[in-house]
Structure formats: C-alpha cells, structure tokens
Amino acid sequence: MMRSLAWYQLREEIEDFLYLEADLLDQRRFKDWLDLLAEDLIYFMPMRRNVKFGQHAERENTKQGEGISWFDEDKWTLGKRVEQILTGVHYAEEPLSRVTHMVSNVRLLDVRPSVEDAQEVTAGCRFLVYQNRIEYENFTFVGRRTDELRRVGTSWQIARREIILEQNVLLAKNLSIFF
C-alpha cells in the first residue's frame, strides 16, 4: 500500500479505534464494548503447541472452526460472558479484576476496497494485558492480534479477531477477561 496522506489518516483512525476499544474494557464498560462487535463476529484464541521446526505453519496453532481452542466464539457467547459478569455473582470476576490493555505496533495489513474509500481493514497489533485480582493475583498476557474491522457510519466494528497468546501451557488460572 502506498504511504499516502490518506493511508496515514486511516492508520491513525484505526489506532484511535483500537485505543478507544481498549479503554472501554479497562473502564469496565462491557456493554458499550459489545456494541463494537459485529453481529457475525468471530473471536478466536488458539492454543499453541510445541512442534518440530518446519511444522509451525501447519501445526503450531489450533485452528479456527475445528476442535478445541481457548476461544472460538461468536457475539452471542461474548454477550453471555458480559451478562455473566454483570450478575455480580460470577465469582471469577467478582470482585472485578483490575485490567489494563496496552495496544501497540498497529499496522494496516490490508484495506478494502481502497485506502481512499476504506470499508474493511485488516489491522495487526501487539497487546500486553495486565490483570490484577483481589490482592496478590497478577497475570500478564502478551501476544499478537489480527483484527478484521468494518466501517459502520463514522466508526468501526470488529468482524473478526484472532488473538495469538504467547503461551503453551496457560500460565493463568482463568481467562475471565476480554482481549
């Protein structure tokens, strides 16, 4: 993609959107966050395997649409997760965790149909999510995300999110937060 002024403007717009989204989660405005998700959302976090050199492309990550992953969900399920937190008796998030999402390395991987008329964007980024819980529980989740974003009016919606967490055995007792 040519680095035109429109390209830089679009990248800034996408960055702003991702930062806004992270902020909604960190402020625990979960219902507002749900509004940023497309109705046909795919929200996917594979498990990562230790595989032999040369087999990474084929076998390192579990696959969306088959078998078991950490998350392979739709908007209905994420809505249920939000609803569960809001019951006030989901003890894994009651009392609520303190969470900060850091988003960086934002890149425009694909823009459709054109940079000047961007309706769909594939954006890559890195995340560092810090979760502190009750008194002494600390978890740090680091990894990569690939988001398919869709323009809706003056803002964007997330149509697909792939979350690549850099862990094999999960080193956290729960994945009770959003990524």
């Binding site: 998350f71 249920k80 003890y91 994945l175």
Partner: peptide
C-alpha cells in the same frame, strides 16, 4: 465444551476461584 469448561469456561472459572 469451550464455553463451559476450563480456564476460559464460564462454569469452571468459578471453580478455579474456589
């Protein structure tokens, strides 16, 4: 299975807390 079980499961997260 995924929405029920394990560390990302809505039911079993509460078990881990207990």
């Amino acid at each position: 299975y995924m929405r029920y079980s394990g560390p990302a499961g809505m039911t079993e997260q509460d078990d881990m807390e207990n």
